[in-house]
Design a protein around this nucleic acid. Structure first.
Lengths: 215, 215
DNA sequence: CAGCTCATGTGAGGAGCGCTAACATGGCGC
DNA sequence: GCGCCATGTTAGCGCTCCTCACATGAGCTG
């Protein structure tokens, strides 16, 4: 019975009481430490002080737990992006740069979430909640794109969806390739945040959006 | 003894003769089918018609086989990019657009390689050969960036390394998010190749590089 | 061509994991 | 106060990774 806590710090009886939440936390910790593949259903159970079969009362299988983590990740992500965008205040340019930094900050500070969301291979339609959460997060990016596009004269406006996809792609590319806590897979002459900032400035310039320095 | 081929199509004696190569091929097939996690050392052995312990004579462990696949992937990738760039002929702009298409074509047509290279979590310094192959591939991108930058007037030239990183980030972001054979995780109004082309055009415009239509 | 050597393959097995089925416990609604 | 059933446990199957002792035969050496 080695899975039992020797001295339960949170004493409990036969029933745990809050196992589902604790399994999600354990999963987050394990994914953060060892990547989405290093995470194990059995080990999460062990961390929660519970037998290896207990998790199956809360998740059909390992994938469902992963999908749950990804969903929570997208919700937290959306909250962070939404807060950073702040409805485009004080002006879309300033807010947009905040948004970019928030994107990378999330990928950097919550590697476990980001991993579950984008690297664990969880299909987006694993659950309706997952898809909905992901859509909400993307909606924020799209909204920012629209606000910026509105600054352009009619006739020079690119499709907002396309622009949002470009923003997402560049952000994700930088996060995935260079945004890891360990500095990524390749030494950089600048931080990931600076790299994204510079890339986005060039991209916006290409659209005809000159940044008015806010200070 | 279920792992033995019932009727060996390529009859062999006790010794296989070309096991290492066949294991790599089997791994490629399995990764392509079921993703980098679906691939199993034991199943690769089965496909090669050999006992589950045989692969250990050629690879220290599962990760080493994965790293080998990734290395070959980077080599093939570099070949494809290099061929597409073709030393910038007939002009850097045209060659650059070929390069972008080649990037996405590789990700699309060789999902198993791309997966092993970027999604399997293989650390780049798993072997010197892997790092070298990855560096060579990146060198091509950097070279293209330099050729394009040379078109700009002195004083308006961004760092070539930064530009190469931007290109890689956007390409990888699009490939990872939207470039899957199944259309990716999200329905798109345009193909991944078109999305990248448009994104790169805007980016280049932002740098002051106007594309002269080649036709 | 006989004999040896060692790279390569086999068999058996330990440890761990995902998952299932049958059984145990006790919190909560009646 | 009682019984239901959500939640937890035990036992166990099949699979994986990996190791170790043993088998085979290809190719060198004399």
């Amino acid at each position: 019975m080695s899975w039992k806590r020797d001295r339960p710090d949170t004493p409990r009886g036969y029933h745990h009481g809050n196992l589902k939440e604790e399994l999600v936390k354990a999963a987050l910790g394990l994914i953060g430490e060892k990547g989405p593949n290093g995470f194990t259903f059995a080990e999460a159970a062990r961390m929660a002080g519970v037998s290896p079969a207990a998790p199956y009362r809360h998740f059909r299988d390992r994938d469902e737990l992963l999908a749950d983590v990804a969903t929570r990740g997208f919700e937290a992500f959306q909250t962070a992006l939404s807060k950073a965008w702040d409805q485009g205040r004080p002006d879309p340019e300033t807010a947009f740069h905040r948004l970019g930094r928030a994107y990378l900050a999330f990928a950097h500070d919550e590697p476990a979430y980001y991993s579950a969301m984008f690297e664990a291979g969880v299909p987006l339609d694993a659950s309706p909640a997952l898809r909905a959460a992901a859509d909400l997060a993307f909606a924020d990016l799209r909204q920012a794109a629209e606000a910026l596009i509105a600054r352009l004269p009619q006739g020079k406006r690119p499709p907002a969806l396309m622009m949002a996809l470009h923003i997402w792609a560049m952000s994700h590319g930088i996060a995935a390739l260079f945004g890891r806590a360990d500095g990524g897979r390749r030494p950089l002459p600048m931080s990931a945040a600076e790299l994204l900032e510079a890339g986005m400035l060039i991209y916006l310039q290409g659209l005809g959006l000159d940044r008015r320095p806010p200070e």
